[in-house]
C-alpha cells in the first residue's frame, strides 16, 4: 500500500517536473529569441523588422480568414413608401380698406389677393382691387359740373408684386397667446383703369401679416399706387395711397 502511494506521488512529482521543465524551456527559448531580436534591432533596424514582422504577419493571415458562418441572417427589409407631404404655399384672401384717389377723395376699396410663398423670405402676389372715385373739389364747389361720368369714376387695378418678409417674429397677445407674424415690403407693377383710360402703374408699400393659426392670416397693408395720367389734360403722376385690412387662408 505504502509503495503504491509512494509510486503515485513520485509519478506526480515527475510529471510536474517534466511539464515544468517543458514550460521553462519554452519560456526560456521565447525570451532568448526576443532578446536576440532586440539585440539585433539595436545593431540593425532592417534585420529586426524582418524578424519581428514574421510572426505578426502570420497572425494577420489567421485573422483575415473568414469566420465560420453560424447564423444565416434572414432579415426582411422594410420597404417604406413616403407619402406626399402636403404643402400650403398658396394664400388666397380678400381685403377692404380706404384708398385716397388723388383729387377725387378718399373712398372705400375692396379687393382680392393671391400669394405664392416661394421661400421663407420671398413671395409673389397678384392682387385685384376696385373703388369708386368721389368728386373733386372743383366739382363740389362749381355746383353741378361733372368731370367724369359714373362709369368713368370706377377705379379698378391689378398688380403683380414681389414681397420680402423683413421682420419675422412673434406677436404676443396677453400672457399666454403668441402668434407668428411678419412685416413685409412689397412692390410691383400693374395697371389701373380709371377715367375711361387704362394706365401702367407701379405699386409699393409695406404690410404686416399675423397668423392666428397655420392656415389663416390677417393682413394690415399700406401701399401707394402710382401711375401717369392725362385726366387733367396734361400728363402727370397720380399717387393713390391705400390702407387695407385683409383676411386670407393658406392652402
Amino acid at each position: 500500500m505504502e509503495s503504491r502511494i509512494r509510486l503515485l506521488l513520485l509519478s506526480a512529482v515527475a510529471l510536474w517536473a517534466c511539464s515544468g521543465c517543458a514550460v521553462w524551456h519554452r519560456l526560456h527559448r521565447h525570451s532568448s529569441s526576443a532578446a536576440s531580436a532586440s539585440s539585433s534591432a539595436a545593431s540593425s533596424s532592417t534585420a529586426s523588422g524582418g524578424t519581428s514582422s514574421g510572426p505578426e504577419s502570420g497572425g494577420d493571415d489567421q485573422s483575415s480568414s473568414p469566420p465560420p458562418v453560424v447564423v444565416v441572417p434572414q432579415v426582411q427589409r422594410r420597404t417604406i413608401t413616403v407619402p406626399k407631404i402636403k404643402s400650403n404655399n398658396l394664400e388666397l384672401g380678400a381685403y377692404y380698406g380706404i384708398i385716397s384717389i388723388q383729387d377725387f377723395g378718399a373712398q372705400p376699396v375692396e379687393g382680392l389677393r393671391l400669394d405664392y410663398h416661394i421661400t421663407e423670405d420671398f413671395f409673389f402676389e397678384g392682387s385685384y382691387g376696385r373703388a369708386t372715385a368721389g368728386e373733386t373739389s372743383f366739382e363740389l364747389l362749381s355746383g353741378g359740373i361733372q368731370l367724369l361720368s359714373n362709369a368713368e369714376r370706377r377705379f379698378t387695378y391689378y398688380n403683380l408684386s414681389l414681397g420680402y418678409n423683413v421682420l419675422p417674429g412673434e406677436t404676443f397677445i396677453g400672457h399666454k397667446l403668441a402668434m407668428t407674424s411678419a412685416l413685409y415690403l412689397i412692390g410691383g407693377i400693374g395697371s389701373v383703369q380709371f377715367a375711361g383710360d387704362q394706365n401702367f402703374a407701379v405699386n409699393f408699400g409695406a404690410g404686416y401679416r399675423i397668423l392666428p393659426t397655420d392656415w389663416l392670416a390677417l393682413h394690415i397693408d399700406v401701399q401707394d399706387l402710382v401711375f401717369r395720367t392725362d385726366i387733367f389734360t396734361v400728363y402727370r403722376l397720380q399717387n393713390n395711397l391705400q390702407a387695407t385690412l385683409g383676411l386670407s387662408v393658406y392652402f
Binding site: I85, K86, N88, N165, L167, P168, T180, A182
Partner: peptide, 30 residues
C-alpha cells in the same frame, strides 16, 4: 415656432426620437 429662421426655437428633439411630418410651408416642415 414658425416657418422661418427668424422665429424662436421653442423645442428640441433628441437623438433616437422620431417625428411625424404633417405639412410643408416653403422650405419648412411642420
Amino acid at each position: 415656432t414658425g416657418p422661418g429662421r427668424g422665429y424662436p426655437v421653442a423645442q428640441v428633439v433628441g437623438r433616437g426620437e422620431s417625428v411625424d411630418v404633417l405639412y410643408r410651408h416653403t422650405d419648412w416642415f411642420k
